[in-house]
Amino acid sequence: MNKDFKQTSRSGSLPWLLQRISAVILFVLLLLHFITYHFLSKGRAVNYQEIVAKAGSWWFPLLQFAFLLTALYHGLNGLWSVLEDYTANKFWRLVWYGLLLSVGAVLLFVGTLTIIKLYTLPVA
């Protein structure tokens, strides 16, 4: 009798869980970011060589890529959940969903390029 009420198949429990997990990861990543970028320099001006050295280390692109993925998921999923509140129509739901996926894909691409670019910065 309640089957008819479940018109949309996917429930939303997984996105809800991932949203929370990504929030925790983001928090940790943000802390690492602050520590490695700002606190370790103890307030003095940082020069180009130091940044290049950091960007070229093995852990830097990994950290940045994790940052990129979780921030994208968290942000876009949050936006999707708000849009869902206001969009009952199936067509428009698909349109919004497609749009968000496309934006995500573009940002992922641009972000990845940036990380690679940083990793390969010339030392001089």
Partner: peptide, 17 residues
């Protein structure tokens, strides 16, 4: 289990923000 199936829906508990 029955009730969780009902509230685990786009128009169920996940609309609570």
């Amino acid at each position: 289990d029955q009730r969780i199936e009902i509230v685990n829906d786009k128009n169920g508990v996940w609309r609570c923000h």
